[in-house]
């Protein structure tokens, strides 16, 4: 994948973020430097509370950094207005959450269509595309199922389809496998790996789970609000399978 790692998708320098103030002040990020390349799958790992979620919130313009520069897909996040941030997320970012966060009242297909509906696409077209993406994650048969009728692994695949449907340049996954059993987790990671291989999409996966580290191209280690080490990952699952 080295040949893909040419253009930079995310470039962060000296990101600092504190929560609260005075005695209750918490330093979540103490100067984060990190680059992501286009089309790579980067694993962001580190102990609980080290600032991973805070970092991806800043990258996705959900949270404002106190200082530092963060350029995502060519945009200086700090320079965006509130409306521009909303548009930026709507068009360029896909989210996968630990708890899936599917809407329980909607079918798999409707859930996947949501990002397109938010973009203002008409319902028919959105549903049509949602079906195609569900097909591609292997859930073409279950488009009418409610989340409660699906297994955890299936729900997470629906969530991935939802993160994909509007063809974002960056997909951010916060602990995508920690609510899943080992086998489902592996399937979900294979799917994410496949996305990175097949498209130019950049994936940022936050995880604790060392059994999935090998799905990444690179791994960034975070501790106490800093990136302490980044390394290439040598053995890839797809080669060992």
């Amino acid at each position: 994948m080295i040949n893909k790692q040419t253009k930079i998708a995310v470039q962060c320098r000296s990101i600092v973020k504190t929560y609260g103030s005075g005695a209750s002040e918490v330093f979540a990020l103490r100067g984060v430097d990190l680059d992501l390349y286009e089309g790579e799958l980067l694993m962001l790992v580190g102990p609980s509370g080290c600032g991973k979620t805070t970092f991806i919130s800043i990258v996705t313009a959900l949270l404002k950094a106190d200082s530092g520069v963060c350029e995502v897909l060519g945009q200086d996040i700090n320079a965006l207005t509130l409306e521009q941030k909303v548009l930026f997320r709507r068009q360029s970012i896909g989210f996968v959450f630990q708890a899936f966060n599917l809407l329980p009242a909607l079918t798999a297909q409707e859930n996947v269509a949501v990002p397109l509906l938010i973009q203002g696409r008409n319902r028919k077209a959105a549903m049509h595309e949602a079906k195609a993406v569900l097909d591609s994650v292997g859930l073409g048969e279950r488009i009418g199922a409610l989340p409660s009728e699906l297994s955890g692994g299936q729900q997470q695949r629906v969530a991935i389809a939802r993160a994909l449907v509007h063809r974002p340049k960056l997909i951010v996954c916060d602990e995508p496998t920690s609510s899943l059993d080992h086998k489902s987790g592996q399937m979900v990671m294979q799917l994410l790996r496949h996305i990175a291989d097949q498209s130019n999409t950049t994936l940022l996966v936050v995880t604790h789970d060392n059994r999935i580290y090998h799905f990444g191209d690179r791994m960034a280690h975070m501790d106490d609000g800093r990136i302490i080490k980044t390394e290439m990952i040598q053995e890839k699952k797809e080669t060992s399978e």
Binding site: R89, Q91, F95, N101, I118
Partner: peptide, 14 residues
């Protein structure tokens, strides 16, 4: 609230 949070993350405007 959680569901609205998801919409918000996905770029739903206020």
């Amino acid at each position: 609230l959680k569901q609205y949070a998801v919409f918000k993350a996905m770029g739903a405007s206020a």
